[in-house]
Design a protein around this nucleic acid. Structure first.
Lengths: 339, 339
DNA sequence: CTGAAAGCGCTTACAG
DNA sequence: CTGAAAGCGCTTACAG
């Protein structure tokens, strides 16, 4: 069933039926009624490809995968994507996932040239991210999940990474810790830089030093978490507490602590950032982990809305959000052993 | 730059240019050359929406997310999707992720009616999966990642779950274990049923019993892995070894074992199924975990190829693959403590 | 081997 | 408030 058939059934022109379907106001109330009723009865739904060709809009949000087997391609992405997709669907938008099998740049160019998407979401932004200027040049609207350096206002949704890690460090300082390690993510990524800044500022504000030996970063895997933490624990001034940038690195950190015969909480305090994925929950651990928490799923949902608003004409400068992060106190943070 | 402009530049008709671009053979070699060269120079790339409307093909593979915050929506999905997307891109296909914010059924109907995708991949198939008959009815080609019950041949790629878990159990039996627990995934899913069958058949073949007390299943999270394993360990006949359906449940299983003051390997052997995600690697654990291994990323890659073949006319009955699973022996499997 | 023309199924000024 | 018509940018019989 297509428009032509539907309008024939109704004895109306395609124009009128189209307008009724698309909610234009210059259609009489009962015509609209009849049309909608018939569309429902016949199970009519418009051919998206025709719609797109006619309007020049694709009705899709694009997102480009980090290349190949990049470990930055982490499991959190599933939750983000699920939020994005759900929320996009409510606004009749699709989500198009594009591979960067050659290069991310080529992928964006393809998306732009072929007009496959109306807008793009940029995840995992680097501190200085070449994709931003590319998207500017390609003139394709975008929303950044996180923040980056840009020469002009741009739409973004970020969490308060700096504030979260400052608070986490402050909590530990309040408990009496003096040597607080940071097991951070890859420092090319903005959030990692912000978290380091938060950690550092709390330490400095308390009159402590922020030594390089207690500040390390790598991909946020269990393995790297183990390695970085083990390194700190065997240094000359081992930490009495560590703050981890992800639940995966925290798993590794906990292993490293236990492998050294130490107990989490009573010997070494641990705080992890928790994005709220369901496969690993910090509250079910032993001891339950203190976390900085922000749902990455919700971020995905919100970003689809922001994309829709942007396409609806909202200014990028008015589409900027920084979400506060919850600090959830559990049993993995205690006063240091010999405080 | 569109087709019309490009052909004007070349002094050719749109038909000829279109045919040259699409690799039809009835175009003279040097015309083709000129056209391709010009297309490159002007950075021409066809408007996908027009292409789709004209051909009736969308050039996209659809995949529907499990609903809402389903814990079945696991982090493995990222790796699968990344493989699928990469491989699809090589064949000029997009991957469209669709939410089932109302119901999966509604999502598939929408995809079919709006002609947004040419084919669908069905992940996480249930033993009896209503989506199969729906897709049949909607007459949309599909490839199943896994297997399911269907009244006719269908395209699928599965791993040998039964064989993998049989081998895993056989390995443990060979080491002298008699009480081998199974920490399985949700039994509505086919792979979980197959894994149980493999576990059971190895036990029975060895003249052992396969007691219900050592056979439990739930979502494959760290938390559930902990809970199920803890339950078995506190039963009247605790296992001396457990086999886990995912690396996440294995994390929980290991915690449960340690929390009971037991050592992995020397006290309780552990085998996990490893899908090859990078954030948690079994070989970096202490002790390194013995695994049944199959890359879910590769499965995604292969499935995109199978979709392309299916759309190219290959019979579903000829598009059926079962991949063998590697059993990788590491240090978490040892003879039972008092064998 | 090449071109003129119709068609894919919508939308949207424009006229009434 | 409604309709006839042109247009979106491709593809593809068909004729030559």
């Amino acid at each position: 069933m297509n428009l032509k058939e539907l309008s024939r059934h109704l004895g109306l022109s395609q124009s009128t039926v189209s307008r009724a379907l698309n909610g234009y106001r210059d259609v009489s109330a009962d015509t609209r009624e009849r049309v909608l009723e018939a569309a429902r009865r016949f199970g009519y739904s418009p051919n998206v490809n025709a719609h797109r060709l006619a309007t020049g809009q694709s009705g899709a949000i694009g997102i480009v995968f980090p290349s190949g087997n990049d470990p930055l391609l982490d499991p959190l992405f599933t939750d983000f994507l699920s939020g994005l997709t759900n929320s996009a669907a409510r606004r009749q938008m699709d989500v198009l996932v594009s591979a960067s099998f050659d290069s991310a740049e080529a992928s964006y160019r393809r998306l732009a040239q072929r007009r496959s998407v109306d807008a793009v979401v940029l995840s995992g932004p680097l501190v200085a991210d070449p994709r931003v200027s590319l998207l500017d040049k390609l003139d394709i609207p975008y929303v950044v999940h996180g923040r980056t350096r840009a020469p002009h206002p741009y739409a973004f949704l970020d969490i308060d990474n700096e504030g979260a890690f400052r608070q986490a460090a402050e909590l530990l300082i309040g408990l009496g810790h003096r040597r607080i390690g940071l097991v951070n993510g890859d420092l090319r990524q903005s959030f990692a830089v912000d978290r380091e800044a938060g950690w550092r500022s709390a330490l400095l504000a308390a009159g402590l030093v922020a030594p390089d030996a207690l500040n390390d970063s790598d991909v946020m895997t269990d393995e790297a978490g183990y390695r970085l933490t083990a390194g700190m624990l065997s240094s000359e001034t081992p930490p009495t507490a560590v703050i981890c940038s992800s639940i995966f690195s925290a798993m590794g950190a906990c292993r490293a602590i236990r492998d050294r015969g130490l107990a989490i909480g009573s010997d070494i305090s641990v705080i992890a950032h928790d994005d709220g994925i369901s496969s690993i929950r910090p509250e079910t651990h032993n001891p339950p982990l203190t976390t900085t928490f922000s749902s990455i799923h919700k971020a995905g949902e919100r970003i689809a809305e922001m994309v829709a608003d942007l396409l609806g004409g909202k200014a990028a400068s008015a589409s900027q959000e920084v979400w506060p992060v919850d600090l959830i106190f559990r049993d993995s943070t205690r006063p240091p052993a010999r405080a």
